[in-house]
Design a binder for these strands. Structure first.
Lengths: 368, 368
DNA sequence: ATGAAAGCGCTAACAG
DNA sequence: CTGTTAGCGCTTTCAT
């Protein structure tokens, strides 16, 4: 049996009612002139207990309407905001969802997170963003797992986790939402890249093209983009049509416009250049268009170009492309995150549609 | 005097060394299979007190090297991560910086936040993103101030705060960093929009242009973009050269590519169309280029186009533009945030350079 | 250099 | 329906 000095009672009784000005409302505060209002302040002002304030403010059922009103008024008069930190500690929930993306400055991840943000806001959750552009950052992230107890769920967007990483997250009990990649049996939101690319390619085939190139992002070391299926779809469409594939026509290059430009420049040096190209993403396609413009190859007369994504600028460039609803992918991912963060179950494989957008960069090949 | 059942001593003495398997390392945990390791776990394993663990893990000076080593090892063996939530509550610092942007899916804010993220990571802070696309969301944000005690600093990016909003943040003692806007006496990072636009415009003037249009984003109701200075610079350059300005040549439209396209279409209907246009941002310029392509107006032969930003795709479109270092703006803003979040002082007006990038969309006007 | 103990601000039983 | 009472997992004096 032990003695507990801390239990000494000094609560001073129930102080409610009008004359309860026992302590100054605003404690003398040196530092920043910051006046941080806490729940006891609100409770005192509303003449109720902190528990009631807590309940009233979080919309719990068991509060008398009149009481709730008083509490809300007191809170707003003091411009009180619940400290999420404290509430997190008490509930074990952080009220935050983390998202890991390769880079925030890229069109795709940014667009996706935009959607996620909307969904999270609706669910009352905040979004924390982690970028892991390099392999070092990536390793560091999964080693230290800063998101660990810092978020209720993790959205992994636009790149593929390896076994070890997935295992690590699982072991730590962190619920993961996979955005823009299908993961069997796991909450994931994606489009059918294979089918999308197949359709895009078929369209070129139907137009009469027989030599079609594929612009593929060179694999960064250890970094697998979650769009690999597109190449598969491309080849499927060719096989269906009994068109032989030439290795030469699949060219690896940087995943952005610059890469598309280089790749296209190279293709133009071939003895038998292709009559059309399918780019794994719109930025590469746009780069390809630049190379064609410089080379004065007419589009689509001399070369057809198809992209994938429907980038914001694709319409302004009149680029035929396989559109995917990027913002919606993020939105759905955000919704799933809200669900799992709330301890609910989330659907596991959410597939969204792609569709081919016919614009001005495609046409029949030149007769030769 | 009271009895404290919870104090019943069951710590079992100092358990260190080999045979310390008094309790299972992983407590039977129903729910999610989650195994949350806390500081007491680490302390036990390292044979020290929690205070020592805390000190050791946060690099405090007063820890014996040997002790520190033991603690670090124990922590890593248990893959323990400090709960930021708990530590926040104890220290009053959240370890988080919030950023408010109009939209995450837009090129500029995304690029800026990318930079901010890097700086924050270095400073050991997390980034929370809030989007306030509509006036409603905006009002809601400043009413509820969800960032209130949820972040140590706030980065406001790419739009302008009004007096009331600024006041509200100040009253609440939230340190604000202004990114992409100059605010006298406040930590802010920006470029000289006036000078940048003046240079871009001068270049057109020097090329011989006399009828130059300005493409201006229509003001969203109550939403002032932080790029207003550009129009000023445009007019200054014209005045310098004694070129009369025509209201007709300043056209308001949507701030994106689509708007640029419409504006340019309209300009092409004039009896005396301009020979050059200066667009307030690259996306509008790109839209303008599309209109010109459709109208088969040669660029720069029939029309010169200058943008502002150096958008990622500007180089692929060969667009002459006034470049601003967007990622660096974010980076610097992030650094200032790290400083103020750490209670330090931050520089107040950080100006970064713009520079005119000469590319293929500008040339002398057609002789007429 | 290390340990003990008192909170940080809130939530969640558990009583009334 | 409302108040009391314990913590949540850390950090931080204050002793030792």
């Amino acid at each position: 049996l032990s003695f507990c000095p801390s239990d000494a009672d000094d609560s001073g009784g129930t102080l409610r009612g009008v004359s309860a000005v026992t302590r100054p409302a605003v404690p003398a505060d040196g530092e920043t002139g910051e006046a941080l209002v806490t729940m006891p302040d609100v409770a005192r002002r509303a003449g109720v207990s902190v528990s009631t304030v807590s309940r009233a403010l979080r919309g719990s059922a068991k509060v008398a309407p009149e009481t709730r009103r008083r509490v809300e008024q007191a809170a707003s008069e003091l411009s009180f905001a619940v400290s999420r930190t404290a509430s997190s500690l008490a509930t074990g929930r952080t009220g935050r969802v983390a998202a890991v993306v390769p880079q925030l400055g890229m069109w795709f991840p940014a667009k996706l997170l935009d959607g996620a943000q909307s969904a999270l806001r609706v669910g009352g959750l905040d979004l924390i963003v982690y970028c892991i552009g390099s392999m070092d950052e990536r390793r560091a992230f999964f080693d230290r797992l800063p998101a660990r107890r810092n978020a209720d769920a993790l959205i992994v967007a636009s790149f593929t986790l390896d076994e070890a990483e997935r295992g690590r997250l699982d072991a730590l009990g962190m619920p993961v939402i996979f955005a823009s990649q299908r993961v069997a049996g796991r909450p994931s939101v994606f489009v059918d890249d294979v089918e999308g690319a197949r359709q895009g390619t078929r369209y070129l085939v139907n137009l009469g093209h027989r030599r079609i190139a594929y612009l593929r992002p060179a694999k960064a070391p250890g970094f697998r983009w979650s769009a690999g299926g597109r190449e598969t779809g491309f080849h499927q469409a060719l096989n269906e049509a009994k068109i032989p594939t030439h290795d030469q026509l699949v060219v690896d290059t940087a995943p952005r416009a610059e890469g598309g430009m280089q790749a296209m420049s190279e293709l133009l040096t071939y003895r038998h250049p292709p009559t059309a190209v399918f780019a794994e993403n719109d930025e590469m396609a746009i780069g390809a268009l630049q190379a064609l413009r410089r080379a004065q190859v007419p589009v689509p007369g001399g070369m057809s170009v198809v992209g994938f994504d429907d980038h914001d600028l694709a319409v302004a460039l009149d680029l035929t492309t396989v559109a995917q609803p990027v913002t919606d992918i993020g939105l759905r991912a955000g919704e799933l995150a809200v669900a799992v963060a709330g301890g609910r179950h989330a659907p596991t494989e959410v597939q969204l549609p792609t569709r081919l957008l016919l614009r001005g960069t495609t046409g029949p090949p030149k007769r030769s």
